[in-house]
Design a protein around this nucleic acid. Structure first.
Length: 137
DNA sequence: GCCAACGTTGGC
DNA sequence: GCCAACGTTGGC
């Protein structure tokens, strides 16, 4: 099983929207690196859900419910989507500042490349983030 | 609102 | 194939 993190602007599509809709089609990705990561996602992989721009925190855990398929918002076969379902809202959101301050979190791509919207997370760092969220999975 | 970082585009 | 210019993202 692999671990991932996706970024979303809550004003466009936030955690509450995911819960309300019960499933999200993760479409509109137009970046090759992010696209490559979408293609590597397997059903059942855990996906951290991060709110960019506003609160800048990881707010919950989601899961891949369907592996990649043609992005329905374009006919260009370069672009793919996956489906995500909510697993659990974090008891305490994990802020970007807290991630930066945690010495155990060193590889997280977001801390170096602020622009990538879909990225892998190392297992030990994933576990650390879950621990920081005070949430039982 | 500004600016840094980075990806993409297009001229050569 | 290189590199400058430009656009976009996202933190501050």
């Amino acid at each position: 099983m692999n671990y991932w993190l996706v970024k979303s602007e809550p004003e466009v599509f936030g955690w509450d929207d995911l819960v309300k809709d019960k499933v999200a089609i993760w479409d509109g990705v137009r970046n090759y690196q992010a696209r490559n990561n979408l293609r590597l996602m397997k059903k059942g992989d855990y996906v951290l859900f991060y709110h960019s721009q506003t609160t800048k925190d990881v707010v919950g855990l989601s899961e891949v419910s369907q592996e990649f398929f043609q992005d329905p918002t374009t006919d260009d076969p370069n672009w793919v989507s996956v489906k995500l379902i909510p697993v659990k809202k974090f008891v305490e959101p994990v802020t970007l500042a807290a991630l930066k301050a945690n010495e155990k979190i060193t590889e997280l791509i977001m801390l170096r490349n602020g622009r990538l919207s879909v990225m892998p997370v190392a297992k030990n760092e994933f576990n650390e983030i879950i621990k920081m969220s005070k949430t039982k999975i």
